[in-house]
Amino acid sequence: MSSRRVFASVVFFLVTAGWAANHFASVLVALKERANLDALLVNSAYGIYAAGLFPCLIAGGLLADRFGGRFVVITGAVVAAAGNVALMLSHGTFALLAGRFVVGLGVGLVVSAGTAWAARLRGASGATLAGIFLTSGFALGPIASGIIASLVTPLWVPYAVTIVLSAASVAVSLAVGDVPNTRPVSAPSNAHPAPHVERSSMKALATSVPVAVWVFASITTTVIGLSARVAHYFPTGVFMPGIAAGLGFGTALVLQALGRRFAWGPYSGAVGALSSALGMLVVGVAGPAPSLIVFFVATLLLGTAYGLCLRDGLLDVDTYAPVAQRGRVIGVYYVATYLGFGLPPLLQWLEPRVGPSLPFFVLAALALSSAAVRVVQIRSGYLDRR
Rank of each mutant, 00 (worst) to 15 (best):
L129E: 04
L109V: 11
V11G: 00
A116T: 05
G340D: 09
F216T: 02
V79E: 03
A35L: 15
S186Q: 15
F361E: 13
P142C: 07
T182V: 11
F361Q: 08
V27M: 11
S208P: 07
F67R: 14
G225D: 11
A64R: 05
A118Q: 10
I58C: 11
T220M: 09
A25S: 15
H232P: 04
G18W: 05
V332Y: 08
N22Q: 08
A175L: 14
L205C: 06
G137H: 02
I219D: 01
L368F: 12
T319F: 02
L350F: 12
L14E: 09
L292E: 08
L363R: 10
L140M: 14
A30Q: 05
T319R: 08
G61Q: 04
V332Q: 11
V11A: 05
R5P: 04
A80V: 11
A118S: 14
V317M: 05
T319N: 14
A298E: 04
S90W: 08
A45Y: 00
R34Y: 05
R374F: 01
Y338H: 07
Q325L: 14
F239G: 00
A270Y: 03
P241T: 01
F24Y: 14
N190Y: 14
A160K: 08
D384F: 06
A144E: 05
S173K: 07
A204D: 08
A217R: 02
R374T: 03
I148E: 03
L258V: 14
A204E: 13
Y46E: 00
V230L: 02
M240T: 10
H196N: 15
G340H: 05
G123Q: 02
L368Q: 00
V111I: 09
A98R: 01
N43Y: 07
L174S: 12
A64L: 00
V10Y: 00
V42N: 03
F296D: 03
R326E: 02
G381D: 05
V332I: 15
A270M: 06
T16A: 12
I378N: 06
A25F: 03
A194V: 15
G106T: 09
R311T: 06
S218T: 09
L363E: 13
R5W: 06
R229W: 09
F216R: 08
M202W: 13
G126K: 00
M280P: 07
D384H: 09
V42Q: 01
R199D: 08
Y338F: 15
P359N: 13
S357G: 11
G60E: 04
S145I: 07
D318Q: 13
I293P: 01
G146P: 02
V172T: 09
T251S: 12
A365M: 12
M88R: 08
V78S: 11
V15L: 12
P290T: 09
G272T: 07
T221Q: 09
V223L: 01
G106Q: 05
V254P: 09
L308A: 04
N84Y: 04
I148R: 02
F239Y: 15
V332A: 14
T337K: 06
V209K: 01
A80G: 01
V294C: 11
Y49P: 05
